[in-house]
Amino acid sequence: MTEVDRARTVVPESGARRARALGGVPLPLLLPALVGLAFLLLPLLALLIRAPWRSLPQQLTSAEVWQALQLSLVSATAATAVSLVLGVPLAWLLARTDFPGRGLVRALVTLPLVLPPVVGGVALLLALGRGGVVGQWLDAWFGITLPFTTAGVVVAEAFVAMPFLVISVEGTLRAADPRYEEAATTLGASRFTAFRRVTLPLIAPGIAAGAVLAWARALGEFGATITFAGNFPGRTQTMPLAVYLALQNDPAAAIALSLVLLTVSIAVLAGLRDRWMTAST
């Protein structure tokens, strides 16, 4: 890991050295890179340019906005927690054990990445809905129904966001040297203790990166949420849903809501980057 660490700290330095000599960057790389940058930033810039700045304070003080924002932050964080609890062990299983059909399992785990979120929402309804394959038993035995509840929002977001975490953590695990764990087990630690005391600290940066990625994905989740959890202010109406519905009859409100979401996510991501990412590299 120390080697990996050193390699990581070297990267930004060499990047900085290159950046100083921008003239040396080959044009076939520079040109598409700049076009790509403009492509990503232009829509955000347009959002700022066309923002209803004058009515913004009034738009933002409405209770509905804060309700939706609060729900978004809470549910995205809860979904990230669920993803961590279930996703890290899953990533470990995929990276450190050998069982038949592992490749297939990995492909299936990443399926929610390519599945249109709305389809994911329908699939969740068929599985965990009141009449769903598993959901009907949840309802009959425990009286739990997930659709139309905040818990349903968390489920939908976790379903879409967890693969990001699993992939990130699995990648870090594969890059990490398994000999440290082996050394720990030869010294008498159980495999679980080795995982807890050696592997986890080793892959903490990867877990943090995966968690941030999952959180960001959960925060922006729309399709699976509106399909599985429905849309009710204060209970299941997250920011993206509020933005979508505001867009139907009040575009200015939608832009204001988008700006709030944008600001909050930039603030949180920047904050986490400073605290976790740089500390880890």
């Binding site: 809905g129 429905g230 849309n231 299941t236 519905l245």
Partner: peptide, 21 residues
């Protein structure tokens, strides 16, 4: 007070078709 305000009429119908509502 409904459990959800759906984004279009077909989504509302689907929720009943799937027996969720």
């Amino acid at each position: 007070t409904p459990v959800s305000y759906e984004q279009d009429v077909r989504s509302a119908l689907t929720k009943v078709e799937l027996k969720e509502a």
